[in-house]
Amino acid sequence: MSGLFEFLISDLLTVSFAVAVIGAATPLLLAATGELIVERSGVLNLGVEGMMLAGALAGFAASQELSYAVGIPAAALAGALLALIFAFFSQTLLTNQVATGLALTIFGIGITKLIGEPYTGTPLEPMAPLFSESLQQIPVIGPIVFGHDPFVYLSIVGILGTWYFLFRTRAGLILRAVGEDHSSAHALGCHVVRIRYAAILAGGAFAGLGGAYMSMVKTPQWNEGMTAGSGWIALALIVFATWRPMRLWLGAYLFGALLVLQLRIQGTGVSVGVTYFLTMVPYLATIVVLVIMSWDKVALRRHAPASIGKIFKPAS
């Protein structure tokens, strides 16, 4: 146990640990931010994993063929493009959202495998950090604040911007109103379908960026299915955060920390059972949050968008 204590102070409270946590959390944060916007508008899109893969492939391919500056918007665009398919089916053709979302994930896995074939096994130069060398060399603050690639800053701007948009702007208020009660919002003259289209596209763009972080920064390579379930963790993260942006931000870093921790704690000689438990914690925590929320019907209504997953069919 002395090994464990030593580990806690010598390894956990280090700059490299913080940097690793940010790296593990960023794709989750990006994807979950997008899905938060979607779910707040009353739509459940389970296609996050598929859209992440589309972004991962587009970002990698565009970076390799052209440049990183093209890769980032290409990733967002590819995610949004896949989201457009979902929007068309779920909002225009009024298909079941759960089934359509699942289909989108399966479609995303397949289509990226097919198109991405020529890119497998080809390397990509790692992306340079955004800030200059001198800023990064400031002790502690340097690597934590200035040491990252553009995606990390994008994810933070994204979640802060989403918070501001949802709770401080009129457009955000309308989006939330649509998510709570689409019939009332429609009666008040809101364009429910149009707003949901916009939310779904934004969600796709964020998911695409989350995927691109993995193929452009974390492991600069393209491989089919390389997001390996991150999209599902992002979905769990939203429930864990009870649809609140700031809790989402915190939750993403918490999930990231657990992931990094279970790998690092193995070096201390603790039982491997402990690391298995740590791997489960994000899911356990999500279930616990769900149970606590469901306990109190009022609280549940206050947190989850009331219209989520429901089909909106305007009375003509």
Partner: peptide, 8 residues
């Protein structure tokens, strides 16, 4: 096979 976890 999980590139991201292997990198982690």
């Amino acid at each position: 096979y999980n590139p991201s976890l292997e990198a982690e």
